[in-house]
Amino acid sequence: MREQYTFIKMDQLVLGYSPTENNILFKNINLCLKGGQLVCFMGSNGIGKSTLIRTLAGLQKPVSGKISYPEKEPGVEIEKWVSLVLTERITVSNMTVYELVSFGRYPYLFWDLKLSAEDKKIIGEAIISTGIGSIINKKVDELSDGQMQLALIARALAQNTPVLLLDEPTAHLDLNNRVEIMRLLRNVARTMNKAILVATHELDLALQTADVLWLASSQKSIEVGIPEDLVLNGTLHKIFDLKGFDLKTGKINHEPFRKTEINLIGNGDELIWTKNALDREGYSIDKNASTTVELIHNEKKMGWLITTPIFTKQANSIQELLDKLSTSIELS
């Protein structure tokens, strides 16, 4: 197994606005962030995710306890160890994406702000790994939300720190952009051996991308484990108080509200999507059912063959399949 360096270590950390019990957010946290790991930090709004991120970045003092950076040589400034992507909305006119990314080099620059060849190389690498090469000359105030997040991540990468902390980087983004960002972070953690902490609400994405989950519980503690364990032992279910989301399949539960049972025969992606549609429409799937739906793969076309004791029909799309099923049920 690959050696994992501990980049941030928390000892008996207590966070909050003041030491009184009501203002404490987290108590006695003993966790660490390791190189190469993507950690997703989940919990409801206002539970203190942002506070923990700010504290780990040294922007805020903990109530008590200690944060150490075991691999950091003494004298190396925190801004060369931890970089951030925050939720603060950035509004600036007259600035290009390249300029924004180059802010990542500020900890290394003198007051004259002259970028060395090395600085430019690192900025270039950050731009390449986030895939924003085509927009570097675009103005920051013309970016879409997804592009803005990528630019901010590129800025953090240009800071070239072992630790990267992101506060809700996928908020306000559509599914495609959310997946893109989580995959990017996943790759960055692995290839650059960085420790990445992502505070997020996206349970499904976190389950599929995180190496480790931190779950902020209402008891002011943080539960830790790999996603699969937390799913199977029910911790996730308990903490999130899930309502109809089946963690084990990653899908929303549907009650079979129709009486009809269907024997579904077939394979591949089409089977999964046909099953989804039947689930949503309230059919239950049963091998011994008298009604069968069979997927037919022709040369170019897909088809669905419906067989009941009374008739046989063919459908060319799932919509047609559902229509024919429901009309035939009404008839019988």
């Binding site: 922007l59 925050l86 603060e88 600035m95 802010f103 500020y106 800071q159």
Partner: peptide
């Protein structure tokens, strides 16, 4: 340096030193 990064807000500015 400070003036340039001022638009990002206090947290970001601090985080880049």
């Amino acid at each position: 340096k400070a003036l340039n990064s001022w638009f990002m807000g206090e947290q970001y500015s601090k985080s880049i030193g």
